[in-house]
Simulated assay, not measured.
Amino acid sequence: MEFTHLGRTGLTVSRLCLGTMNFGPHTEESDAHLIMDSAHDRGINFFDTANAYGRDSEGNLKGRTEEIIGRWFAQGGGRRERTVLATKAYAPMGDWPNEGRLSALAVRRAVEGSLRRLNTDHIDLLQMHHIDRDTPWEEIWQAMEVLVAQGKVIYVGSSNFAGWHVAQAQEAARARHFLGLVSEQSLYNLIDRTVELEVIPALQHYGLGLLPWGPLRSGLLGGVLRKEREGLAVRSVSGHAGQILEANRERIQAYEDLADELGLDPAVLGLAWLLGRPAVTAPIVGPRTLAHLDTAEAALDVELDQKTLDRLDELFPGHKPAPEDYAW
């Protein structure tokens, strides 16, 4: 396993982050425990979850994924000590006021709930799952400072922030002599490259690590067309993902053809591309099975040459930093 620092911190994390959103809804608890054990065996020490993960088909059972992880930690054997644990707060966990978003009260309640479900006394990386436009940064940072002082949270990160939100957060933290954000979790893959305009430049300026979620765009970059032809079940081709597939079918076919030329699984190609992008600390891979984890690990051994990178840019054009992307 390869390791790196998370942003400008001294925290050492694996170059793959184990995403756990499938644990509960799509992966049974026993299989989830096997996947987490296997991740440790491979050297993956960075796990990502969220308080809202684990909903069933009717939107119930929020928090189930954290509970699955908590019961895995309870088995001992150094499981918690060997894990850099990231979770998130923002999503409403109930119908009563202050059960979601980022007020000082809501953040405190979210952290206490996550600690209980995760069966731990601290969260290594607490991430704000979304920007809260109704809560001032002074209130947010005061709440985070208290949690850090109490030892309940070590680092703070963001998720789904725009570039100017990152700048707002960091300047407010600087005024308080607080470390502020250390990472941002954004949608980033060959199909979705909007973060290259302003988010990535902001992260580079402030020294934040980038944790791409959706690195294979719901499986669309994981060989979806080949699986269709082979009659394999593909969970990702319904709803919004299905619309994206139809809008990009020719490009995705060309992408799969390129992967075949290179002798690579399409998923390996997509992850290898991300691992070489500026500011990327660790793509968040969300395996439903151990085989998915095998595929993700294989990407660490692939270094793409410039010719391949140019061909990928032709298929999925990216962005220069703003404003040069759209102005002189």
Rank of each mutant, 00 (worst) to 15 (best):
G10C: 13
S14I: 02
N22I: 14
N22M: 14
M36E: 01
M36Q: 01
S38W: 15
A39R: 04
H40L: 09
D41P: 13
G43A: 09
N51R: 12
R55F: 08
G63W: 01
E67F: 11
G70I: 01
G70Q: 00
W72V: 00
A74S: 13
G76A: 12
E81N: 12
T87A: 09
K88C: 03
M93G: 02
P97Y: 07
E99N: 15
A106L: 01
V107C: 05
R109C: 15
L115F: 14
R116W: 11
L118E: 03
N119V: 06
I123H: 10
L125P: 05
L126I: 06
T135G: 00
W137T: 08
E139G: 04
Q142I: 09
M144K: 07
Q150L: 05
K152C: 04
V156P: 03
G163R: 05
V166N: 01
A167D: 06
E171G: 04
R176P: 02
V182L: 03
S183Y: 07
Q185F: 02
L190M: 11
R193P: 00
T194C: 05
Q204D: 12
G219M: 00
L225P: 10
R235M: 15
G239I: 00
I244M: 14
R251I: 08
A254H: 12
E256Q: 06
L262I: 05
G263A: 09
G270V: 04
L271V: 13
L274F: 13
V285N: 13
G286Q: 05
G286H: 00
G286N: 06
L290Y: 00
H292C: 06
L293K: 08
D294F: 07
A296H: 06
A298I: 12
D301F: 13
D305W: 10
D305A: 09
K307S: 13
L312A: 02
